Simulated scan of single mutants.
Amino acid sequence: MDIVGDIKRTFKEGSALTRLIYINIGVFLLLKIIGVFFYHSGQSIPLYQWLSVPSVTEALVQRPWTPITYMFLHQGFIHLLFNMLGLYWFGQLFLYHFEGDKLLGVYLMGGLWGAFLYIVAYNLFPAFNSVYGLLLGASASVFAILVAIAFYDPNREIHLFFIGRFPLKYVAAFYILLSVIGISSTNPGGNIAHLGGAFWGWFYIYQLRKGKDMGAGLVGFVNKIGEFLAGLFKHKSKMKVTYRKPPRDDHEYNRQKHKQQDEINRILDKIAKTGYDSLTKQEKELLFKQGKK
């Protein structure tokens, strides 16, 4: 079973939604594994403190990366599970109307607006004067996606367990109301961040209808960083590249197509006998390319 290879392939070929979910899960597992090693060594390392957004501006200046890292950070499995379910459900609805770059823009900018409103509130309102808070989680970004798609397609109905079908606009309004009420609960910072994300989701669609993609600049910058990092870690291929000449006539063309179909049939027979995991990497790639035609 080539699990690592399959993960790499689905990450590379998957949508922006797939990649965001993979990154969130990957960060969660990585930090948990690192934590186990430090626990058994008798040491402690404040990983979550260094990656979460602090409410105190002095600490934020020392950790300026946190408004980005916090939106991929989850301390508990239930926290991760519910955020990823929301990201998947609402992200799928978003991708029904828009391409992946726009989803990434709403996710990132929604998270940044959530962090911004959280920092402003904790340093502006007297209720938080003596509170040192830490913000983490993807919920502000998920709220941004939910409100964006609800504002764009308000009457689209979704099925809610044990309740039935409801228009998206009421679902978004309900969650926003819960966040407003929840500011006075045990998680005021998280609920404030939800409202920041919700604002961005509305503002993004409002500007998009005017022809302005307000997240395009950030997404372009992120894509350039991704291309740069990919170039650094890309291994030079040791495979010999050969170029096939195009078929000279219809007879040659039909012969090549017949040969390719025989190979596909052989792979399908192999799957039927021994399962998909028994395929080689080359066989999986050939099957995938054939499926895209």
Rank of each mutant, 00 (worst) to 15 (best):
A150P: 02
L17T: 02
Y48C: 10
Q282L: 07
L87I: 14
I183D: 00
L218M: 11
G100S: 15
K257G: 08
T186P: 02
H40W: 12
L279D: 09
W50R: 04
W202N: 09
P64K: 03
G231L: 12
Q290A: 14
G182N: 06
F128G: 01
L17P: 00
S41N: 12
F174A: 12
Q282W: 10
G137Y: 05
Y276M: 12
W202L: 15
F116Y: 11
K8S: 15
W65M: 06
F151E: 15
V131K: 09
L47C: 01
L108Q: 09
W200P: 11
I119A: 05
G14Q: 03
Y107I: 08
E283M: 03
V61G: 03
A216C: 05
L146D: 13
A115S: 13
P67W: 06
R19D: 11
N265K: 15
I163L: 14
Y243M: 04
E227F: 02
L268W: 01
K292V: 10
G76C: 03
A140Q: 02
Q290S: 13
K273L: 12
K281N: 08
I264V: 15
I78R: 07
S15R: 15
F288Y: 11
Y96L: 06
D6I: 13
F28D: 01
V147H: 01
F116S: 14
F37V: 14
V219P: 00
L229Y: 11
M1Q: 13
V36E: 06
I119R: 01
S130A: 09
I264A: 01
K210M: 14
A16Y: 12
H251Y: 08
N123Q: 06
F94M: 09
G220M: 08
P246F: 08
Y22K: 05
S55A: 04
Y107W: 14
G201N: 02
G76P: 00
G14R: 10
G215Y: 05
Q49K: 15
